[in-house]
């Protein structure tokens, strides 16, 4: 192991130390050092903000790091090879599962799509991958697990419903025989199958390096959203009455789920940031089903991604893709509102 890896691993105990003393440190800072009076609305809000922002950022760093190490064992190439020649339904399930762990950025959606199609992977299986990749986000799973308002049940529901939507949507897209709505030039693509070297073997140092890069990249991209999300939560803390949103977005509101999905489409954000935004919403009476529908819509159904896909798909197929996925999210949202 090189020095960088050793230092990185040594930071992990430091991380736990800070994390477990964070509450006492925040108490000291807010009530002793700054001297705010305990128990007031405003002090509570400030305390919440001062505690929650570093807490979430700490969690984020650790989780992305762990996920980065896991992801370094996967690659788009390996996934492609694995999916080649798989039968339809089985292929859809595998594609959805691999979509969760394969490193993927929506800016690579096109070359990945082309690579899959060129390898003879059915369109429907490719779609299962493309739907699951953004929608089922492992960082979001950890965030749901960690938060006491959600817990493992919700994390599990999120994971299974996301996988189910991805699997079934892909299956339907294949069954609808929509191949003709893929841009014609896509089928002319020829790709070299030469393996580039050092792709398969990765040293542990390289995995750590990769994980560190992931941490930097994602934290840079979303820290501001988290600060804003927590800020909204802190501002709402004690000021907006509990259940204020329940009549509109609670479980008994029939239009809550579709409204949440519509609101989510134009937004495009990272799943971890969305979790921070829906937390205060749930505290104010938005039901879990509606909140998860919103989250899946933000990360799974995005206008920018649809625009990217326009290069390889005709609009009919994009419409079907959005329609099928939106229907899936609506169903999941209503079911959750019924049972929780």
């Amino acid at each position: 192991m090189n020095k960088k890896s050793i230092y990185t691993l040594l930071l992990i105990p430091v991380w736990f130390l800070i994390y477990f003393y964070l509450e006492s440190m925040t108490n000291w800072l807010i009530y002793d050092a700054i001297g705010l009076t305990e128990g007031k609305h405003l002090s509570k809000s400030i305390w919440f903000f001062a505690f929650e922002v570093p807490k979430v950022l700490l969690l984020l760093v650790l989780i992305i790091f762990i996920v980065g190490i896991i992801r370094s064992y996967f690659s788009a190439e390996k996934t492609k090879k694995y999916l080649e020649g798989k039968s339809l339904l089985r292929g859809n399930i595998m594609a959805a599962l691999l979509g969760v762990v394969t490193p993927f950025c929506s800016c690579s959606a096109i070359p990945l799509f082309l690579g899959f199609v060129e390898a003879g992977i059915p369109i429907g299986v490719t779609f299962s991958f493309l739907i699951a990749a953004p929608m089922v986000n492992e960082v979001a799973i950890f965030f749901l697990l960690e938060d006491k308002n959600f817990g493992w049940e919700i994390a599990l529901i999120y994971l299974t419903s996301g996988l189910t939507i991805a699997t079934i949507s892909g299956y339907i897209i294949e069954k609808l025989q929509l191949q003709k709505y893929v841009a014609d030039w896509v089928y002319k693509v020829k790709s070299s199958h030469e393996e580039t070297e050092d792709e398969t073997i990765k040293s542990f140092d390289e995995r750590i390096e990769y994980a560190i890069d992931q941490v930097k990249e994602i934290v840079q991209k979303i820290w501001l959203y988290i600060v804003i999300g927590v800020g909204i939560g802190a501002g709402a803390h004690g000021f907006i009455p509990q259940d204020a949103l329940a009549p509109f977005l609670g479980k008994d509101s029939w239009y809550g789920v579709p409204l949440a999905i519509l609101a989510g489409v134009p937004m495009y954000s990272n799943a971890a940031a969305v979790v921070e935004i829906i937390k205060p919403l749930i505290a104010k009476g938005v039901s879990i089903g509606t909140a998860l529908a919103f989250m899946m819509s933000v990360i799974g159904l995005s206008l920018p991604e649809a625009i990217i896909l326009k290069k390889v798909l005709k609009w009919q197929l994009i419409a079907v893709f959005i329609g099928v996925v939106a229907t899936g999210i609506i169903i999941v949202g209503y079911i959750l509102n019924l049972i929780i």
Partner: peptide, 27 residues
């Protein structure tokens, strides 16, 4: 895209030196 695919690259950005893919999907 067609040229990128010819080189067998599925994750961009990628770097090619003298016809050989040396890095992909990484800044």
């Amino acid at each position: 895209m067609l040229k990128i695919m010819e080189l067998g690259v599925m994750t961009t950005p990628a770097l090619v030196i003298d016809g050989k893919v040396v890095s992909k999907g990484k800044l």
